[in-house]
Amino acid sequence: MIKAVPKPLEEIIDLVKDFHKVLIVGCDGCVTVCEAGGLKEVQVLGSSLRLYFTQAGQRMDIDETSLTRQCDQEYLDQLKDRIDHYEAVVSLACGCGVQYLAERYHDKIVYPGVDTCFMGVDLERGVYAERCQACGKCILANTGGICPIARCSKRMLNGPCGGSEKGKCEVNPEIDCGWQLIYDRLKILGQLDRFEQPVDPKDWATSRDGGPRKIVREDLRL
């Protein structure tokens, strides 16, 4: 799922300080799972902001809500009768949700309340790790199910580089060397022959290098 972290409170305070009526909108999707932007986080942020502005002697009405998903028009529509009561909205959804909310309510000020980080997995509660960079052309079949684009710091398709040491990346000993992982797994799978095939330059046009991407599935459309 998409992983995000809450923005520092100071940053959000600074964004909303010139308003008096603010709505905080959470998202029950990915950001709820990583505890960055679900209803609970909405409530905590709302309470924190109320406490801050109260002690600062500033009038501030803060309301809280959360939507099933902010990346879907039909859920965003649920705000249509109330959004006009607010001068600004803080969305705790990922960058997609923030943008879609702003797109749906075109004349409303919408601020992000989280920093969207990556697509990843939960290693344990509170520890998330990147696994996919959505290059648009999956090569996992050839790399032992471990992605060199997401997991090698240099995105090498013919790795590992000369900086791999004891299974760790030259960038940081906290990072596993993606190519060590690939090698180990290919060995287990009996597919080491795949390692010796030079991999041709990749077509990055399906990645973000092709410009903003869009999927049109005619088989699904009405």
Partner: peptide, 26 residues
């Protein structure tokens, strides 16, 4: 391929790595 920019004087730079060393040889 080159060292990661993390080591250098511009650790905040974007990296490219469109190709790797093997692909540059090709």
């Amino acid at each position: 391929t080159g060292d990661h920019q993390h080591f250098g004087d511009h650790p905040n730079a974007v990296n490219v790595f469109d190709l790797d060393s093997t692909q540059l040889i090709q």
